[in-house]
């Protein structure tokens, strides 16, 4: 079994009215050698919507909380570094 694997997997399709929904998830697997354990991070990535007329539409699943957290972390770090640079002058 490989040490690190990243794979996008489709789920079971669900028929809802005229649309057929297929969810997709991305799993990051980090397994220690010798069945000693590991780390798995699985998250939803997108949803494929297929209409009866043959149209296909991919809707991304956006993690707003994660984006907001990273943005705040980035802003905080940027302003902190800016303060540090101003203080040195």
């Amino acid at each position: 079994m490989p040490f690190l694997t990243i794979e996008t997997l489709p789920g079971e399709s669900i028929q809802t009215g005229p649309n057929k929904i297929t969810p997709f998830s991305q799993a990051v697997k980090l397994l220690l050698p010798g069945s000693r354990g590991g780390l798995i991070w699985n998250r939803p990535v997108s949803v494929l919507v297929q209409g009866t007329d043959g149209s296909e539409n991919v809707l991304p699943v956006v993690d707003v909380t994660r984006i907001a957290q990273l943005a705040l972390l980035g802003i905080g770090l940027a302003i902190g570094i800016l303060f540090l640079l101003i203080n040195r002058r």
Partner: peptide, 27 residues
């Protein structure tokens, strides 16, 4: 690591169907 752990079974309410999606992290 399977898709079933991320997407729960659909919940129907009238004409609307809801599928909850979650992020799973395990060590």
């Amino acid at each position: 690591a399977s898709v079933k752990s991320v997407y729960d079974s659909p919940v129907k309410h009238g004409e609307t169907m809801i599928i909850p999606a979650a992020e799973v992290l395990g060590g």
